[in-house]
Amino acid sequence: MAAAAAAGAGPEMVRGQVFDVGPRYTNLSYIGEGAYGMVCSAYDNVNKVRVAIKKISPFEHQTYCQRTLREIKILLRFRHENIIGINDIIRAPTIEQMKDVYIVQDLMETDLYKLLKTQHLSNDHICYFLYQILRGLKYIHSANVLHRDLKPSNLLLNTTCDLKICDFGLARVADPDHDHTGFLTEYVATRWYRAPEIMLNSKGYTKSIDIWSVGCILAEMLSNRPIFPGKHYLDQLNHILGILGSPSQEDLNCIINLKARNYLLSLPHKNKVPWNRLFPNADSKALDLLDKMLTFNPHKRIEVEQALAHPYLEQYYDPSDEPIAEAPFKFDMELDDLPKEKLKELIFEETARFQPGYRS
């Protein structure tokens, strides 16, 4: 834990890192770190609560700039109880001085990944967590956004079992017609939660990839272990087919990539493993919904509104309290091709509203 900075004593240090967030945020305490930044909790002297502050230093890398800009653009436009918001952003007053960006968010005690390492969940908890994931996802999908990296560590939890989806750095506007060349190379989302079509096709992607990830998360809540822990690309596919069985001819016809289709045709026939054999203690309604989410063919996979209306979630289902976005989200430009200098300018502009004396 960093010592509390005395008023006016300059930035606090946390594990050798400068955290320049005073005077409003003090009493910093280390939480963890990701690929390009550290997260601390801090005391907000204005709202009198502890908050989470993520320090991001992305400006050396085009990919990190892209992810940072995506996350900020999306989260500043989203407003939903099951999606983490941005409360404040701290950065230098000029673009030349801006080396880091500090993002202030609600402090959540833990995440689903940490929880599943230590606790076996009751059916009631599984049901409530799944409902909140789908409630947040309904809003995301209504904005025409794909999260693309749903996994237990991106689901934040607090002691009252509130759940918030975080990390929109890989999110995209849904565009089933656009052929994202190089899709697989830039697709760094965790393999275990990846839909089979991501490994088999490169053309376009749809909201059904997020539903697949939610199915993987439900299976993990039922058993405290990942359902498809593939060691590499082909191993991942083999794990999936080992449980779902061989795809039907109709399902194979959806695979545009001939090499991928021929690979699947070359494999020995596998039978589907019954879900109640894998999860003998699970609620039968939970397994019915799991089956509809972990469907090989993305066109037959359940959609988020149908999933919310499934009998497993009937005690929570309330369409009048499951809000959607006001308007579909649009990125003005494809960020993939922009140089990091341009992305830095866009991050600077996007964060201006939090600067003292800002006038829109």
Rank of each mutant, 00 (worst) to 15 (best):
F296M: 02
E326R: 00
A286S: 13
N27R: 10
S248D: 07
I90S: 01
E350S: 08
P23F: 00
S122Y: 10
Y36Q: 14
I165P: 03
L130Q: 14
A171K: 05
D100S: 11
D337T: 06
I255Q: 07
N281T: 15
V18Y: 02
E334C: 02
R172G: 11
R77S: 01
A9Q: 06
K342L: 06
K55C: 12
V39A: 00
T63S: 15
M221T: 00
P196V: 07
G16A: 10
K340E: 07
G37A: 15
A307D: 13
V46E: 08
I211C: 11
T68G: 13
D111E: 13
A195R: 09
D177S: 07
A195D: 15
L134D: 09
L130P: 12
A3F: 01
L157W: 04
L134N: 01
V46C: 02
I31L: 02
L121F: 12
N123Q: 09
L115Y: 03
M293C: 05
E322F: 06
N262G: 02
I31K: 07
A286T: 13
Y205C: 02
K114H: 04
I243A: 01
Y113L: 13
V14P: 12
N281Y: 15
L112W: 00
I72P: 00
N82M: 04
Q249H: 13
L130H: 00
R191S: 11
L69P: 11
P298L: 12
L308Q: 13
F296A: 03
R172C: 06
E197A: 12
R261M: 12
H178E: 09
L313Q: 14
S320V: 05
K231H: 04
M13S: 04
D235I: 02
V39R: 04
V101T: 09
Q249R: 00
F168Y: 13
N276P: 02
I324C: 03
L156R: 06
I103N: 14
A219F: 09
F78R: 09
G215L: 11
F78L: 14
D111T: 08
I240N: 13
L258G: 06
E303I: 01
S360G: 09
T190S: 15
P196T: 15
P328A: 11
R50Q: 10
G34Q: 02
N158S: 13
T68E: 15
A352R: 10
D175T: 09
K344M: 14
Q132D: 09
P58S: 15
E250L: 04
A4C: 00
T190D: 04
K342Q: 11
R79Q: 05
K48P: 06
F279G: 05
Q249M: 08
N257M: 08
E186P: 06
H180Q: 14
V101E: 15
R277N: 06
I211G: 09
T206I: 11
Q315Y: 08
H239E: 08
N271P: 04
N82V: 03
I72V: 03
N201L: 09
L289Q: 14
S57Q: 04
H141L: 15
D210C: 05
E341F: 05
S41N: 14
A325N: 05
K117I: 11
P319T: 14
I103Y: 15
R359G: 13
L200A: 07
Y102L: 04
E186S: 04
E341Q: 11
G85E: 06
M98G: 09
V273G: 00
N262P: 07
S29N: 12
D167V: 15
T63F: 13
E350C: 02
E60T: 12
V304T: 05
A174Y: 06
W192C: 15
E345S: 04
V49E: 15
H232Q: 12
N82Q: 12
V49A: 15
E314A: 12
F19W: 03
M38P: 13
V46W: 09
W275C: 15
S213T: 06
G136W: 14
F228Q: 00
C166D: 01
Q119G: 11
L335A: 09
H299M: 06
F19N: 11
P229S: 10
E96Y: 05
N45V: 11
L218P: 02
Q249I: 05
Y205V: 12
L237Q: 14
V188A: 10
R359M: 15
N123T: 14
Y317D: 08
L308C: 09
P93S: 12
I72H: 05
H232L: 15
H141E: 07
D100G: 12
V21D: 06
I256L: 08
I324F: 14
L134V: 10
V18H: 04
I133L: 13
E12R: 11
W192N: 04
P298Y: 02
